[in-house]
Design a protein around this nucleic acid. Structure first.
Lengths: 174, 174
DNA sequence: TAGTGCATGTAATGCGTTACATGATTTC
DNA sequence: GAAATCATGTAACGCATTACATGCACTA
């Protein structure tokens, strides 16, 4: 069983404290999904695999009459997570349909590019609003969780500025 | 046949001039892949689909004894491309394993985060070098092709600065 | 009592990469 | 004559999403 990025997302979240599959999905959707999404269809099978190899241990923990399985990281799992964290390959990969559109804007009418830049800026603004909405004072996060959160904010702000600058430039030369 | 992003990448490149599947792959690898990669396994079937619906027209154009099929965009195809370009949904999505690592850096030893930031910065530097290497004066590109190229450069430079700033901050507080 | 949230999972489908097969031509 | 490049494609596989199925509990 070759570990994938989902492996580490799931294992990493369990390392922060015991969690159910449902918990993990909820946390992923609120935080990690901004740079790495994951669905139930990945999370539950991954939990089964991780339990098989002994990196996590599951225990029944019903809440009321609702069945519920909570997973805890094992020492073996903690070591595996640490090993992955030490890894150094860092290839940056993007998948950005809005840039693809912009790339082909020469094929459309003159005002098209300006519209696409505005749409892109609005995309950033939406994402920024979502990120800011997360920060409703639920106490301080671990430092690096917070750092990545900050990266998201900073990235959006940079993106908004970049688009605005290009919009101004286009309007000047048009 | 629901169009996907590959549809537009392929169609858009053919709109810039007649091209073979091989040509398209080469151009994608040199330019578009920085924000949207595509493989032969997508490109050739996509060309067949596009020809089926009449958005492109293929013609045999052997070079020497090598068989070769070159595709040209049709009026119908040009209209479809324009329609897509007008589209406005812009959800920004990232997939960035290096951020995932950083997110979990609290689970490792103290110096880990600093190392991850450095690795991330080097990732940006590598990508920047690749982008700069593309610019070997093959004449001026269409304005928006160039704009997206610039986005890549600016994004890398911003990323490098961001990492450097966080590295300094970490060292101060450590 | 209807809707929302908690909770677990699977099946179908689609997207994308990797690896392979094949063969001609150009360059060193 | 070996290696790189041009050129076309397909099959197998893996990763990820969507949609569905099921059922309990809380709350308006």
């Amino acid at each position: 069983m070759e570990p994938t990025a989902v492996t580490w997302a799931v294992l990493g979240l369990i390392a922060l404290g015991p969690r159910s599959g449902y918990d993990i999905k909820r946390i992923v959707d609120r935080t990690i999904r901004h740079f790495w999404a994951a669905s139930y269809g990945q999370i539950y099978p991954e939990l089964a695999r991780l339990e098989d190899v002994g990196w996590i241990a599951g225990a029944d923990a019903p809440r009321g009459g609702r069945s519920r399985r909570v997973f805890t990281i094992t020492p073996k799992g903690r070591q595996a997570l640490r090993d992955w964290l030490q890894g150094r390959e860092t290839r940056i990969e993007l998948r950005d349909e809005s840039l693809l559109r912009l790339f082909f804007a020469d094929a459309g009418p003159d005002e098209l590019g300006l519209g696409l830049l505005q749409a892109r800026r609005q995309g950033y603004e939406q994402m920024l609003a979502q990120l800011r909405a997360l920060d409703d004072g639920t106490g301080p996060d671990p430092p690096f969780v917070d750092l990545v959160y900050r990266w998201g904010i900073d990235y959006c702000e940079w993106g908004i500025e970049w688009c605005a600058r290009q919009e101004r430039r286009l309007r000047r030369t048009a």
